[in-house]
Design a protein around this nucleic acid. Structure first.
Lengths: 188, 188
DNA sequence: ACACCCTATCAACACGGTGTCGAGAATGTT
DNA sequence: AACATTCTCGACACCGTGTTGATAGGGTGT
């Protein structure tokens, strides 16, 4: 698995064969299959690890919004950024794998679902306090905002173009979040 | 190519072999290679077609913002939705292909770049008119908003979960756009 | 010291998909 | 009729995956 992470820094998942993985770990290709059923399983394990290690950070980051809501949003976004930024190769791999692998898709959507639920709660709490207007379904708005983060950061992490400049990313996302949550409804 | 579009309605690109494509068109596999250098080329051609057919719609949709800016945003979003919604299998295929194919990635990012430029102009025009505050770089904001659309609609088109409900998508996106563009800067 | 099992490793194989080649039909041109 | 162009095919080489059956080593109990 260390080998997998190292190789993923340089090449995409598709460019890495089971042979590469095995050789990197000093094994024959078939010995690899003793430890993992497939290349995909390695990535899934890597993702599992990352998720476990990071799911705590999310909950704490978003919960302390009593004081300053804008700061809480920023905290959540920073936590999102930190979590996935620290494991860029893994994020890249899982997004690549999701194109062809149901399990990867399911795992990733579970991760995103966690974020969406957390953010939905945040929005509903603010609406209950009367600080945020109720216009759209909170879950729809939360989904959109989480997906915004996902896509914007993804683009940055894999050096796509166009992409938001990395230094402005947090500010840009926070701006969009805060205005989307607290801004006035747009007449349909 | 018609065959490709039909097959892509049912299965993902990875599940379609050159053989399937050829047979669907009543050809042998090697005859296929007379017409296209690879499976990827078929998808690229499909995308080219879609882009060409749709790039006009975008420009006109966003340009008429003199009257009602919110309506112009909505128009742009609707045009985005219509363009890609009408060719879901192709969108799905190109996103899948982009995971492994440089040319597909380049083509897609060119398409997105077109949108970003258009939206950047819109934002800058509004700021020049004094109706929108200048906080973030217009191009960063535009990039984020275009990627928001991309990701939210993608999730809807491929039936991901979580996803914004399709009926609320346009409203949700419009809300985020308008508030992000016209909303007050968030103190960093 | 022996038998035993469990862990670990490997070479060899079968399979499926890709892309190439050269040989030839089919069709049109002079 | 000779020729060229367009198109089609079967056969091949290649690569990556995943499986299998044979085998080596290192504990453990007797």
């Amino acid at each position: 698995m260390r080998t997998a992470e190292v190789l993923l820094e340089r090449r995409s998942l598709a460019e890495i064969s089971v042979d590469d993985l095995a050789q990197g770990a000093g094994l024959s290709r078939s010995a690899f299959y003793f430890y993992f059923p497939s290349k995909a399983a390695v990535v899934l394990t890597l993702v599992d690890r990352m998720v476990e290690q990071a799911s705590g950070a999310r909950d704490t980051a978003l919960q302390q919004l009593d004081s300053d809501p804008a700061a809480a949003c920023r905290g959540g976004i920073e936590s999102f950024y930190a979590t996935f930024g620290a494991h860029r190769p893994v994020v890249r791999a899982v997004s690549e794998l999701s194109a062809t692998n149901d399990e990867a898709r399911a795992l990733w959507s579970q991760v995103m679902q966690g974020w969406v639920e957390q953010v939905t709660e945040l929005i509903e709490a603010e609406r209950a306090r009367g600080t945020a207007p109720s216009a759209l379904a909170a879950s729809d708005l939360a989904t959109a905002l989480v997906q915004l983060n996902e896509r914007v950061l993804q683009a940055i992490f894999v050096d796509e173009s166009p992409a938001v400049s990395e230094s402005a990313a947090i500010d840009t996302l926070t701006h969009v979040w805060v205005n989307a949550i607290y801004g006035a409804p747009v007449e349909g």
